[in-house]
Design a protein around this nucleic acid. Sequence first.
DNA 1: GGCATATACATAGCTAGCTATTATATTGCT
DNA 2: AGCAATATAATAGCTAGCTATGTATATGCC
Lengths: 157, 157
Amino acid sequence: MPAYRGAMRFSKDSSAGYLVNDLARRFAAALQARIKPLGLSTGVFPVMVQLWEDDGLTQTELVRRIGVEQATMANTLARMQRDGLIARRRSKADGRVQEIRLTDRGKSLRGPAIDAALAVNDTALSSLSPEEREQFLGLMGKIIRTFDDGEGAAADD
Amino acid sequence: MPAYRGAMRFSKDSSAGYLVNDLARRFAAALQARIKPLGLSTGVFPVMVQLWEDDGLTQTELVRRIGVEQATMANTLARMQRDGLIARRRSKADGRVQEIRLTDRGKSLRGPAIDAALAVNDTALSSLSPEEREQFLGLMGKIIRTFDDGEGAAADD
DNA sequence: GGCATATACATAGCTAGCTATTATATTGCT
DNA sequence: AGCAATATAATAGCTAGCTATGTATATGCC
């Protein structure tokens, strides 16, 4: 019996972090299964979504929009280029910057890929009522905002 | 304008999968920040939780309880051993099996580590009312069960 | 013009997950 | 007893995230 008070109980089934992590893996696996046949993977998907909206973005802008680290994005883009999803071209206005453009193949995947993502969400939430789905999305948004708020301000204990 | 119907709209802010993935990364980062000083990391945490409950489990049993792939567990355990959290001893009853036991250091981390996890959950959910927290956990449980149900039965389209 | 600083991106090296394969020990059947 | 089948764990090799650091181009100031 450890001396710490309150630390005795830790049930994974009532730990938000535990469940969120579990859920994320399941969502990822489900999406993976549906988009792998298209030649896509989960890490690539958010980038494609942005490029389908606005082709020709820079790496920095993708990083800003997707919220992943720059190094992560650099590696993801390298794989995407290797796999023929994008092409990169140095800007002549600024030699540091690269415009990232979808290849024709990349463009062509928009419809089926988004359908796949929608299907995953729909299947996953199939046991929830419309109100519950709203609740779920709303609560997640609220939690994400909480994380964002406590970002610069180190409101420790 | 692609020909696919329904594929036009895809807002990440209303995609459960997108948000869950985002949330998982934030939870993991928050936990990491709190347990790294203890010499723990996120992947190790679930294993420690099980061993704090039942020391001496086998790899197979940990895999079963945590729901991660056997290869993932093997690697995690290797790091844990390297870092002095566990020791492994071959069972003399069955030479294939290893009993996994916490070191004294591993045992000693229980209190502070669980406190850290509880604090992360509490902070993350701080903007939710008690009812909302219940809802959130309940909805996640429901979704996880949905995933579990559609596991063997390929109820495709 | 030249140098310090800042910006954009790449690289190295880590954890953590995955699939697929291999190695080793046990069990079961004949 | 011997061999096939099974069970346990390890290894190889991939994606995807992270931190820290390196490299190249721009920009600002003197």
